[in-house]
């Protein structure tokens, strides 16, 4: 099998995406209700945030708008996992029912093909919400704006999103080994909600855990420091792009290992 270039994969992705959108559009009511549901989720998250922090000028040395910045950052960085990797949620059913075998017979990368099958449009609302929050907080804090800043922001956002993607991949892949893996995936999915808090509120032990064992601090806290507090950027922040890439690579390997081990159900 010859190696296929990135252009080939992009073209394939667009084709599959178009099919997926067409099939989604045939369930229009479901699509609209799901989108409204997603907007509801974001609004409620924002309202909770507002209720908690409106009466306090600062939290552990973090001003209201800095917290808002973190919140916006976390929303944006968990969007890719929502949009591009939503098919992970169906992996369990596919593996049990035996449908997963169909993916194994395609002459393209298995992981790529599986994930490309579903594109979740709902995530785009969240993206808009997150970007809006980020810009609002950015202006309110009075951070300077330059092309370099924007570039930095983009790079760090993209690599931060890899962390959540990696966590979800690994959690979804657990279905190759254990039964009832929905709970594992659900557990990891809840991490998203914890990413928006500055890690300094935790005690040292949990700071360590949330940095190295369950790397949720890399979803928003460390990468956002590069833009938010450019005067004192810790080493871990600069390393966060590498961390993101490394985690993604490992999760990809786990996922593929599980998939290769898969032997079908015989049906």
């Amino acid at each position: 099998m010859q190696k296929k270039g990135i252009r080939f994969y992009l073209r394939i992705y667009c084709k599959i995406l178009a099919q997926d959108l067409k099939s989604k559009m045939s369930y229009r009511a479901d699509f609209i209700i799901s989108t409204v549901g997603m907007i509801f989720t974001n609004i409620s998250g924002f309202v909770s945030f507002w209720i908690l922090f409106r009466s306090f000028p600062s939290l552990n040395g973090w001003s209201y708008y800095e917290m808002l910045f973190l919140y916006g950052f976390s929303l944006v960085s968990i969007t890719p996992v929502q949009c591009f990797f939503d098919n992970n949620w169906s992996l369990r059913q596919n593996v049990y029912s035996g449908d997963f075998i169909k993916y194994c017979f395609r002459p393209i990368n298995l992981f790529f093909y599986y994930q490309s099958e579903v594109f979740d449009i709902k995530g785009l609302g969240q993206l808009a919400f997150g970007i809006g929050t980020l810009i609002y907080a950015w202006v309110k804090i009075g951070l300077p704006f330059s092309v370099l800043m924007l570039l930095k922001m983009t790079v760090f956002l993209l690599t931060a999103s890899l962390v959540m993607i990696a966590l979800q991949n690994a959690a979804a892949a657990s279905c190759f080994w254990i039964e009832n893996s929905f709970y594992v995936l659900d557990l990891v999915c809840r991490f998203k909600d914890y990413a928006k808090y500055p890690i300094t509120i935790f005690s040292p032990v949990f700071r360590f855990i949330f940095t190295f064992l369950m790397p949720i601090a890399f979803i928003a806290y460390y990468p956002s420091l590069v833009v938010l507090r450019p005067d004192a950027v810790p080493l871990l922040s600069w390393l966060s792009p590498l961390v993101g890439i490394a985690f993604f690579f490992v999760s990809y390997k786990i996922w593929m290992r599980g998939a290769m081990k898969y032997s079908g159900t015989g049906s």
Binding site: D30, S34, M38, F40
Partner: peptide
């Protein structure tokens, strides 16, 4: 016939 959206709301 929509479950996810209704449930999340």
């Amino acid at each position: 016939e929509s479950i996810w959206g209704i449930n999340i709301m």
